[in-house]
Nucleic acid binder design. Structure first.
Lengths: 349, 349
DNA sequence: ATAAGTTCCGTAAACGTTTACGTAAATAAA
DNA sequence: TTTATTTACGTAAACGTTTACGGAACTTAT
């Protein structure tokens, strides 16, 4: 059941292929009568142009690529939502690539995308990536790139991020104000600028409060969640003075909960926790988790908008188009200063 | 900075375009010496074949499409993960389309996919969809389709699902055994076979326990989460006898938690809750949520495998290839029979 | 020596569009 | 009337691959 093409339409209508094509594209030099005839038949036969022939000829793929570390993470899910929304409204298609934080995969994907498969790219880099030649290469090939969240700072293009320094600062200060003296920072890879910025915020808040920065109170994410939990437990046992945790990654906040549970530490009685998170159910956790929430949907949407602006105007993207959106601190029970107030009101009334 | 193509390589090497193409594709009728020369230059210049030209000529897109209701849902996120994994290992690309449960969007996407843009399709249908002519149309056009989770039963193709009847039965029986007498079912749209099957399991479990099935104790999801919460609250107030909730959708379990919280009902003291969910943090909720957990990653992976088998063998997919994977009942505190045991051990020791 | 077979490569057509260019017919201007 | 302009369409080339076909040049068999 071969799909029908222009040639078949043309035969049927006793017109040339060119005329049919122009009629369907609503060109000025085709009579209204012919256009109507052509469209009627096209509709009747459910004609749909072959996208590859079209892309080849026009040198436009009508497709963008999204490169992200993972999709089973609420932040990226929401971002994709925003991206897909904008793409659809521009009649674009969305190819998705998951790096799983693996630099090698990111590299392989860059190769695949180098030959016009996509008209543009939205990228959140893998935490392993330290070298960015592969992305520079894509730029040289003329593929516009917009970074979101996990950006490659040095590339002169637009980046859509959140106020990571301020967020790290706010989170840490919030813990300090809740009475924490020794705060564990579960940090994002320092390869990534968001990792460095959140760390700087953490350090600055400590300094402003006259607290020392202790290198031993910083941990990076491991390969698996189970490793994270163990790592946190070990640190909590080695440093019993720790009374606060600032998780820069959503999953690390959850790992902290598990570690505390395993060790019998109460939250927020013994340890207060704040975490970057986009989970709607943070409020339903035991105890409800205080979060720094990023506007994930908006980040995806705005990044996509910038990309489509560049694609449609056929212009190079300027770093000045970069956007910094604000994260929101949502205070919940996991950082309540007074332990006796920590019990949520509705359990076992 | 135009990407280089076969013609440029051929010029540089003083060979014909055909020879270069065949060398790169490792054909038998090209000498090893020539292959080496060609590959060396191709590597040096970072040649990457134009996918659209290749697709057009070969009539193969090396791309599959994934059509799902949403991505901000842990089940689908995990499924995509499995799908992407299989696709990548087959050197395929993944186009993603979100229907947002909207039949019109699903229809529009079917149109777009009708002309060879994808070699195959993995579909989880929108709950609004009652008519499936658009999917039949794609089949007629020769595009193999594998359904996963939300299937269109009548189409003679493979479907990868979970044991929905048994899951509904197990969930309901579990609540009954925990002492529930009046169980509210937050159901999936009865347009969908998974909705009907889970419902049948619910009804059968009630019958086997000698309990009546009450139509008034069944609710369907609304447009927004807020509407769901309100709807549940209203029902709980109108039916104070309800002492158990079976949520067939992840988000509905969360809405139930909120509703109970708003009404001051304790879980599991006043009301016990069980829900379909793929959230890893179900165990960290307050109280920990008893779940029916679907093997989402495997579902995606197996569905993709079936699709690629069909694509590579160029064969039509048979309904006999369908797979039914087992869901798992994970018992946690939200359905504990004895109210006094409901308090998790680690809060405020 | 010629015939037959093999090896290696080139020519050209094809995939289904889009578009630069050309042109016949119809209309308007002179 | 002739000339210029407009309208509406066809011809053919192009996008970058892949591949059927053919044929030199070389090797082996006779």
């Amino acid at each position: 059941m071969k799909p029908i093409n222009l040639k078949k339409l043309a035969q049927e209508l006793d017109l040339s292929v060119a005329t049919v094509s122009r009629a369907l594209n609503d060109r000025y030099d085709i009579s209204q009568a012919t256009k109507d005839r052509v469209r009627a038949l096209a509709n009747k036969l459910n004609y749909e142009p072959n996208p590859y022939a079209s892309s080849l000829r026009r040198q436009k793929s009508k497709t963008i690529g999204v490169v992200i570390p993972e999709v089973a993470n609420h932040f990226f899910s929401l971002a994709i939502n925003g991206i897909e929304e904008v793409a659809r409204s521009n009649n674009y298609h969305v190819l998705i690539y998951l790096t799983h934080e693996d630099y090698q995969r990111e590299l392989a994907m860059a190769r695949l995308l180098a030959s016009g498969r996509v008209d543009g790219l939205l990228v959140s880099v893998a935490s392993e990536s330290a070298d960015f030649a592969h992305l520079e290469f894509l730029r040289e090939r003329g593929i516009p790139i917009v970074f979101f969240d996990r950006v490659y700072d040095e590339m002169p293009t637009a980046k859509v991020t959140t106020d990571d320094f301020e967020s790290g600062y706010k989170a840490t200060r919030h813990l300090l104000e809740a009475g924490c003296r020794h705060i564990l920072h579960l940090a994002v890879s320092q390869n990534l600028s968001i990792g460095r910025r959140r760390m700087e915020g953490y350090v600055q808040a400590l300094a402003d409060a006259g607290r020392p920065y202790e290198e031993s109170l910083v941990l990076l994410a491991r390969e698996t969640k189970q490793q994270d939990v163990i790592q946190i437990q070990q640190l909590l046992e080695a440093h019993p003075e720790v009374d606060g945790i600032f998780a820069s990654v959503e999953s690390q906040a959850m790992s902290s909960y598990e570690a505390c549970r395993n060790l019998g530490r109460s939250i927020p009685g013994d340890i207060k926790i704040i975490g970057f998170s986009n989970l709607e159910i943070a409020a339903l956790l035991d105890p409800p988790l205080t979060t720094i929430t990023q506007p994930a949907y908006s980040i995806g949407k705005e990044a996509a908008k910038i990309l489509f602006l560049a694609i449609s105007k056929n212009r190079v993207i300027s770093p000045t188009q970069s956007l910094v959106l604000k994260s929101e601190l949502v205070v919940r029970a996991s950082t309540l200063p007074a332990p006796q107030a920590a019990r949520p009101a509705y359990t076992l009334t």
